[in-house]
Write a protein that binds this DNA or RNA. Structure first.
Lengths: 142, 142
DNA sequence: AAGGGTTATGTTACATTATAACAGATTTCA
DNA sequence: TGAAATCTGTTATAATGTAACATAACCCTT
């Protein structure tokens, strides 16, 4: 796994729009879609989708935001890693909450397999579906 | 990882539309989007998106087709596994080809991590970005 | 064989997610 | 200063996915 990003730039280098999007994502513990962000930021002057998507592109590339493909949604992340590194999420099917997991062990588990087929891996993106602790308990109790 | 599907039903139990979609996916080695399928199957009477999506839902649930979230695309699979089991793909950034990998080692690599946070994992879906052998060679040669 | 429940089907219309393309403003820095 | 690059706002549209409804087929039970 090699790294290929715009390394952890200090937050001061973010533009106003990028900072607004990042702060909004940080203020939620659930992932938000681009259009959720658009609704929340309309009063701050972000009125059209490209404004949101452009900010998200940068934040994802920099590694402070991840995209959850399964949900078409975005979530902030404070693990200090680059956009190019492996990422793994536990997504609760019941409540939609998301926890980021350490992907290191997963990366080492897949490398032999990808190498065996001659594939040059750059980034792992994994999403684990299931039930978070609280929802699992609710289910077995109820 | 528990299993939760409509187990490997014989193909005779597929409906006409499901069989058409499955055969089309099998005849390609690249993933197809729902709208790619719609184009190819219009003459067979599949004229509107819900017809495609309904067939895909069943095929994915049954485990003979997988959805590639990153690409919004679908690919057939002949590993004899259920919809609920872990799945891992190597997706080439250059040519779009997709190879399915064995996910067993990956599942055992993540289980301790998900359990540590009290998360009850049901299914892993992982996509590894990178370059396939041929594209990697082209890049380093050129 | 009639009828009742379920499943599959076709269709329209719409919701959601994402991008192309362009023009103006701002920054950077040689 | 002025050329290159970047960020900005905007319109319009593409691509992906679903809700809702009416009909038809199928399976089962009596």
């Amino acid at each position: 796994m090699t790294v290929c990003c715009d390394h952890h730039p200090p937050e001061e280098t973010l533009t106003r729009n990028q900072r607004l999007v990042l702060e909004t994502l940080r203020s939620e513990d659930k992932p938000l879609t681009a259009y959720n962000l658009l609704d929340r930021l309309r009063d701050d002057g972000l009125r059209a989708p490209p404004q949101i998507y452009r900010a998200l592109d940068r934040l994802v590339n920099v590694g402070v935001v991840h995209r959850l493909d399964r949900l078409n949604a975005f979530i902030s992340c404070n693990h200090n890693h680059c956009g190019g590194q492996g990422v793994l999420f536990a997504v609760c099917d019941a409540c939609g909450s998301v926890e980021e997991l350490k992907a290191d062990t997963v990366e080492s588990a897949i490398l032999p397999t990808t190498e065996a087929i001659g594939f040059h891996a750059v980034q792992l993106v994994g999403e684990v579906r299931g039930l978070c602790g609280p929802c699992e308990r609710k289910k077995t109790d109820g």
